[in-house]
Amino acid sequence: MIEAIDLSVKIGKNQILKNLNFVIHEREKIAIIGPNGAGKTTLLRVLGGMLPYEGKLIINGKEISEYRRQDLAKLISYVPQIFYTPYTFTVEEFVKMGKYISIRNWWNAEGIDRYLDEVGILNLKARYVNTISGGELQKVLIARALAQNPRIIMLDEPTSHLDPKAVFELNRTIINLEKTVISVVHDINAAFNLYSKIMIMTNGQLYGIFSGKSKEFVDAISRIYQIEYEILDGKFIVPKGP
């Protein structure tokens, strides 16, 4: 369980997050949505223990700032937004790195094929990470996060570099994970259909937390983006009008 009480983050003189309060339960699927600059990535980073914060941020009964790095990594893994690596590791080596937290000599790790299979990239195993496409790399990063075997997995726009088929497959993978998932998404339809809760953020504040597939969510994003949306067939969110 993650609990934030009056969580605020300052970077330099800028107040990036202001007084957030929320609770995330085990195995919930949370989408974070909001305009650019709303503080979504910062929220993921502070949850990953990368940033100092004010207020309380408690995971499993303990302040994040009090965790040792290796203990936190057993609980949370973080798939970053844009990640390019010029280094010549194979996909296999790269995914094995996720095992570091359980086996310090991670290159001896075994049984990573199932993580590759889970995101559908078993065929890329022997390829070098600097020679694969952005979408493929995204999947490699998710496989690595899975290899870390955390309770909570955080993803920053996981489908942003993918083609429609890959988006479909990856979304299905993410939703079927038996883990807590916290995912920054821009696709309001994906958020609406796939996630159990949706946190809407604006200007570093939490605008509200909504259930998936709820009319309240659609009304809220209509106000925030100032576009009138409606629900079609209970599935699609589309702007009103012709």
């Binding site: 040792r68 790095r69 790195m97």
Partner: peptide, 21 residues
């Protein structure tokens, strides 16, 4: 040696994988 390869991914990535950078 086990940490060096992970450090190449950047401080933040290394940390999220559990490295005491």
């Amino acid at each position: 040696v086990p940490e060096f390869d992970l450090m190449l991914m950047g401080d933040e990535q290394a940390k999220s994988m559990g490295v005491d950078t």
